[in-house]
Simulated assay, not measured.
Amino acid sequence: MSHHVPVRTAWARLDAYWRLMRFHRPIGIWLLLWPALWALWIAGEGHPSPKVVSVIIAGTLVMRAAGCVINDYADRGFDPHVERTRQRPIAAGEVAPREALGLFVVLCLAGLALVLLLNPLTIALSVPGAFLAASYPFTKRYTHWPQAYLGLAFGWAVPMSFAAQTGGLPWIAWPIYLATVLWALVYDTQYAMVDRDDDLKIGVKSTAILFGAWDRLILALLQVLVLLILYGVGRGAGLGWPFDLGLAGAAGLAAYQQWLLRHREKANCFKAFLNNHWFGATVFAGIALDYLLR
């Protein structure tokens, strides 16, 4: 497969970069952002520092873009063979692999500039965070658990948010981190169920392949576990009925996702994945409302 890149206008190049950073598909930004916002609101008891919130949101945008770029760079040999990824800018020959690496470096430097606005603990935590984000795309070659590794990377926004807001890492940060990791395992497995046939052909590993016929049951158990951990977080943080109401809404959305997955149709598996945006938003709404009504 040649990566010869045709000469194009500056506008076409910017458009290709925009799609490479996946800004035309904001779902990943939301999935990364909701747990960070859960953490910030609990850490700030409903009144997190506006500066910290701004930096975390900007950092989320930049690092998610960086993650997408390095992911497509890592997958440039696989993407042309997968129905869903054939049109990605590197796979389609619109962006050269070295251009993508250059863009990745620029985005990482932007992320570094942002984190330097925060306290020393948050700066220190950004190092393992950056490592998790950059190494994730390579895991699908070696383990059936890349979805769990993605959770470790995406969830890292939680301890960073607590550190940025409080200057420390209170115990409650860790159950929120665990819930986020397990939730990512749920939604990224739903995502992987879309690609299962292609992945089996090209030898990419995933939890969708590992779970096989047990996929829906395992996902249901994980969803219940996420909700139970979040319920415990609510008790630990002294949250009351508005939070429980948000969790009940999230439980309803989890049930709806299971209904979508019932025949394992690709389009509905993808719909279930996208629905997780509302799951995260509903949990956040419960947290925000709880502090608002105090």
Results as ranks from 00 to 15, higher is better:
S2F: 05
P6A: 15
V7A: 15
R8C: 08
A10F: 13
R13N: 09
D15P: 04
F23Q: 04
H24C: 10
R25F: 11
L31G: 02
L33K: 06
P35C: 03
L37I: 01
I42N: 00
G46F: 01
H47P: 04
P48S: 00
P50L: 02
K51I: 01
V53T: 13
V55I: 03
I56E: 07
A58I: 04
A66L: 08
C68T: 09
V69Q: 10
I70F: 11
Y73M: 12
Y73P: 06
A74Q: 01
G77D: 15
P80L: 05
V82T: 05
T85C: 11
P89F: 07
I90S: 03
A92F: 04
E94R: 12
E94T: 05
A96E: 07
P97K: 12
P97T: 08
V105W: 08
V105L: 10
C108V: 09
C108W: 09
G111W: 00
L112D: 01
A113E: 08
L114I: 00
V115C: 14
L118H: 05
L121D: 02
T122Q: 07
T122D: 05
L125F: 13
S126A: 15
V127F: 14
P128D: 11
P137I: 02
K140R: 06
K140D: 05
Q147K: 10
Y149E: 02
L150A: 06
G151D: 07
F154M: 07
F154D: 10
G155Y: 04
W156T: 01
S161N: 14
S161P: 11
F162E: 06
G167M: 05
W171C: 10
A173F: 11
W174C: 05
P175G: 04
Q190W: 13
Y191E: 07
V194D: 03
D198E: 01
D199G: 00
L200T: 00
G203I: 02
G203K: 08
S206A: 04
T207S: 15
A213K: 12
R216W: 03
L219R: 05
Q223D: 03
V226N: 00
L227Y: 10
L227M: 14
L227I: 12
I229D: 01
L230F: 03
G234P: 05
A237K: 06
L239K: 07
L239T: 02
L239W: 03
D244F: 15
L245Y: 14
G249Y: 08
A250W: 01
A251I: 02
A251K: 02
A251P: 10
A254F: 15
H263A: 13
E265M: 05
K266W: 09
C269H: 02
A272T: 04
L274R: 15
W278L: 15
F279Q: 13
G280V: 04
T282Q: 09
V283T: 12
I287G: 06
D290T: 07
L292F: 14
R294K: 14
